[in-house]
């Protein structure tokens, strides 16, 4: 029964033998030989050390950058050759939450940040009448209602990160990609994030009960262990699929002593 259900699931993101360039160090490879298929309702946890290319992989998965080699398909559509408005509909079905405070727009309030995608894509999404209700419901669910008219810079990292999540959920995406969402958060916020993302994956009321496909890139994958989750490791430019969270032990090997790389 389980296998029959799995076989019916569609692939939402496909990377085939893809090489992804680093955005931080132009001209260098971040990850290569990526063969990765994200199917709907998957919950992926990508582990890797700092600078291992997690953000670059997520940017490519969200159709922000194209792979330098290989094939990239989003909802079955090959959009590697060109990135133009033709694939805008597919791109809007993917939400991306950036790390380090979520890259909010400081000239807008929290309400403005969350409402911006809906205001901009009103014609595309046809959500003209329900905008205020949608934003209010999102802010309420994410405990942001009290901060709705504050500037992002006046809030702490945890609340800014939640605002980034609310902004990504505004357009009701089917796939949610999160770049290191727990970085710099205290245990209370971190627990909230893990619980909320598991709820989103199973179908949350704020998403009208629809199940979501979630990909989380993290430094420490241990808190994300849950039956059914899928794991992958980014290490030394290689992308490796794992069977269990225990296989992330390679990340705990000690760093080489300072200076040995010179010799």
């Amino acid at each position: 029964m389980e296998s029959a259900r799995n076989s019916n699931r569609r692939a939402v993101i496909e990377l085939i033998d893809a090489t992804i360039a680093s955005r931080r160090a132009p001209g260098t490879v971040a990850v290569e030989g990526v063969d990765w298929t994200v199917e709907e309702e998957d919950f992926w946890v990508i582990g890797g050390l700092l600078g291992s290319g997690k953000s670059d992989l997520l940017a490519t998965a969200a159709a922000l950058t194209k792979p330098t080699r290989g094939t990239y398909r989003l909802f079955g559509q090959d959009i590697s050759p060109t990135y133009d408005n033709e694939c805008l509909t597919e791109r809007l079905r993917v939400g991306l939450v950036f790390g380090e405070g979520g890259r909010l727009f400081n000239q807008l309030t929290i309400w403005g940040n969350v409402a911006l995608p809906l205001q901009y894509h009103q014609a595309t999404t046809g959500a003209e009448g329900e905008m205020d209700e949608r934003i209010a419901a999102l802010l309420e669910t994410l405990d942001l209602s009290d901060h709705a008219h504050h500037a992002p810079s006046s809030l702490g990292l945890g609340w800014r990160q939640r605002t980034a999540l609310a902004r990504a959920l505004t357009l009701k995406p089917e796939v949610l990609l999160l770049d290191n969402p727990l970085a710099g958060l205290d245990p209370r916020h971190a627990r909230w994030w893990i619980d909320f993302l598991f709820q989103l994956s199973a179908g949350h009321a704020v998403m009208d009960g629809q199940t979501m496909t979630i990909v989380v890139a993290v430094d420490d994958p241990r808190p994300w262990q849950q039956p059914g989750n899928r794991f992958a490791l980014l290490h030394e430019t290689r992308f490796t699929l794992l069977n269990d969270v225990q296989e992330f032990n390679v990340l705990e090997s000690p760093a080489p002593p300072h200076g040995t790389d010179l010799l």
Binding site: G27, T28, V29, G51, H235
Partner: peptide
């Protein structure tokens, strides 16, 4: 010796792409 700032971090063994990009030459 490579300056320490430009050295890749541990865990990010970065390989140089075979051809420098047009953007890097322009920059």
């Amino acid at each position: 010796l490579t300056p320490w700032r430009t050295r890749p971090k541990f865990g990010a063994v970065q390989k140089v792409l075979t051809k420098p990009s047009a953007e890097s030459i322009k920059a």
